[in-house]
Each structure stands twice: as structure tokens, then as C-alpha cells.
């Protein structure tokens, strides 16, 4: 499923919330909408499932103008996750997840199976959580239920409005990691709103930066951090080079394509590698930190299995940060 905003505009009373937004999201892509608060990112998101009607312009889902699709019909096929989660407190966790399948009038057995499957997928064992009341859940658990509810009817599109914004940083990282795992198997077309740049860089295939209702830039995370536009430079901050290094693996910098493992995300780069060496699946940011700590300008790069692969030097880091290396 593809998505497209075409010259979409929206004005609230006297403020232009979204100003002539044109943007496409391709099938299976995770697009992050980011920007300062009031930049119009949530309004743009809500245009997709018609919670907001554009004043002019249009939004297309798979080439079809959404204003031609009945709103309820449209929304039942678009997953929707919000920051406040919005679980229904009078329904059990299972009933919350079953909300959309019930609206679609699925058979009971099919709903039950689907609920179990989804709860297990988001890491909440169905035996333990299906009959729980939302008020008993922690923030992280509630948000997992929110994601399960959005995925219930297997919608091809997922809209997420700061879904992990209200949980503590540790839980947020766990949720982000798990979401990436789920997304890698499901391959939904996702529009993800956040104001957290680290989150955007970590999750996004592409990042669209909005400012005062306008699209300021749209690029893959690595390119965005090299963007010379003053607003973007200001937005990405003085540590943008570090952010860039955080996206790249040691392996990539020395010419051995190695994905950053889950451990790399949570800063587990030191795991198992002997002193003076760094694992190829660690991030370059971690490698830099290790160099600074050891007072060295180079480190041995070793595979996760401990085999010596090559040498990572400060020059490699400088090159990567400058962006000559493909991200």
C-alpha cells in the first residue's frame, strides 16, 4: 500500500497547521514525521485516516482519494496507535484487541485466535494478559496492547502518533526494538510521528522534517544528518555527527557489511570483545567512545564470534561522519 499527500492544506481558525504538503510513502516504508510541536505532523497524520479533513489538496491511499472512501470503512483498514494509548478501560485486554475484528464482524473463533496470536507477537503472553483490565497494566504493557489492537485486523497501513512518547526511556528503547522486530516480519507501510530525533533516526527509513506546517526536508536518516539547510542543521543539533555514527556499524566502516545487532542499540558494544578491540556489530559511536576512553586512535575490529577482521582507525570514523561512506 502506498500513501500520498498532494498539496494538502489545513487551517485551524487563524493558524496554518499544514501548508501545501506533498509527500509520498512507498509500500512497506517506515516514514517518520518529525518537527517541533505545532509543526503540523499530527494533523498530517490524521488526514490519512480522515480524522482531519484537508481544506484543499488530497490524500491518496493506494492511488485512491481517501475522501471517497467512507471514513469508518477506511479506518478499519488502517491501524492507529496514539500516545495516550486510549485503551477502553471497561474492556479486558482481549476485548480491546478484538475491537476492530468485531467491527468487521469476524467469527468468534477467528477473533479469539487472532487476539492470542497478537498478544504473543507484542510480547504479552495471552494466558496471562487476555483477561487483564487495562488499569492494571504498566505504561509499556498498555502501549503494547495499543499496538496489538492497531494490528488486529492486519491493516496494510499503520499510523503511529508518538506511540512511545509517554513511557520511560528504558521501556521506550525496548518498545522501539520490538517494534522494529515486528515491522521486519510484517512489512507494513508505516507513518510514525515523533518529536524525538533519536527515535526518528533509529526507526525511520526516511525522515520528513516539518516546520510551521511546511515540509522542510525529507531524506534517509544518514543524509538528513548531512543536510546543510540552517533549520535542519539547527534541528539535528551540534551532535548530529555522533547521531550519524550511531547509525553505522563498525563492520560497515571497514568494508565488512555487518548489521547493527539488537545489542548495539542498547549500548552493549563492549560485550565479549577483549581490550583494545571492538565488535563489528557495535555502532561507530560506541567505537569512538571506546577510543576516547582508551586514548587510542585505532581499535582491532573483531567479529561477534571473536575472529579478528581488521583495524578501525580514527580516519575511518572521520570519513564515516563526513558521509563519504554510503549509509
Amino acid at each position: 500500500m502506498t500513501l500520498e499527500w498532494q498539496n494538502a492544506c489545513k487551517t485551524f481558525t487563524d493558524k496554518k497547521a499544514v501548508d501545501n504538503l506533498s509527500l509520498e510513502v512507498s509500500e512497506g516504508e517506515l516514514l517518520v514525521l518529525i518537527g517541533p510541536s505545532g509543526c503540523g505532523k499530527t494533523t498530517s497524520l490524521k488526514m490519512i485516516n480522515r480524522l482531519v479533513q484537508p481544506d484543499s489538496g488530497a490524500v491518496f491511499v493506494n492511488g485512491r482519494d481517501v475522501s471517497e472512501v467512507p471514513a469508518t470503512e477506511l479506518r478499519r483498514h488502517i491501524g492507529y496507535v496514539i500516545q495516550q494509548v486510549g485503551l477502553f478501560p471497561h474492556m479486558s485486554v482481549a476485548d480491546n484487541v478484538a475491537a476492530v475484528p468485531r467491527l468487521l464482524k469476524w467469527e468468534k473463533d477467528r477473533i479469539d485466535d487472532r487476539v492470542k496470536e497478537l498478544l504473543n507477537l507484542v510480547g504479552l503472553p495471552a494466558d496471562e494478559f487476555a483477561d487483564a483490565w487495562p488499569s492494571r497494566l504498566s505504561g509499556g504493557e498498555a502501549q503494547r496492547v495499543g499496538v496489538a489492537r492497531a494490528l488486529a485486523a492486519d491493516p496494510p497501513i499503520l499510523l503511529m502518533d508518538e506511540p512511545f512518547g509517554a513511557v520511560d526511556p528504558l521501556t521506550r528503547e525496548v518498545l522501539q526494538r520490538e517494534f522494529l522486530r515486528i515491522q521486519s516480519t510484517l512489512g507494513k507501510t508505516v507513518v510514525f510521528v515523533t518529536h524525538d530525533l533519536d527515535e526518528a533516526i533509529r526507526l525511520g527509513d526516511r525522515i520528513a522534517v516539518m516546520n510551521e506546517g511546511r515540509l522542510a526536508a525529507v531524506a534517509a536518516p544518514g543524509e538528513l544528518l548531512l543536510n546543510a539547510d540552517p533549520f535542519i542543521r539547527d534541528f539535528t543539533g551540534e551532535d548530529r555527527a555522533l547521531r550519524r555514527l550511531a547509525r553505522l556499524s563498525v563492520g560497515a566502516a571497514i568494508g565488512e557489511a555487518t548489521p547493527i545487532t539488537a545489542a548495539g542499540f542498547s549500548g552493549g558494544g563492549e560485550s565479549g570483545a577483549p581490550a583494545g578491540s571492538v565488535r563489528t556489530d557495535a555502532t561507530l559511536k560506541e567505537a569512538l567512545s571506546m577510543m576516547l576512553e582508551a586514548g587510542e586512535t585505532s581499535l582491532e575490529a573483531v567479529s561477534p564470534a571473536g575472529r579478528r577482521i581488521g583495524k578501525l582507525t580514527m580516519e575511518d570514523l572521520l570519513e564515516s561522519a563526513a558521509g563519504t561512506e554510503a549509509s
Binding site: L51, I82, V85, P89, H90, A99, L103, G146
Partner: peptide, 27 residues
Amino acid sequence: VPLSAIDAGLGLGMSQRQLFYRVEWPM
């Protein structure tokens, strides 16, 4: 009834009537 529950109900594709009977009234 918190706005988030209403937002979620509408976002999931409930009609106004369904929202009332399934979410607002029981709460």
C-alpha cells in the same frame, strides 16, 4: 470519558453510534 478513548474509538473505525454504545455509554 477521556478524549483519548474517543480518539482511539474513532480512529479504529467506529461510527458515532458504535462509539456511543461500545465506549461512551459503558464508561
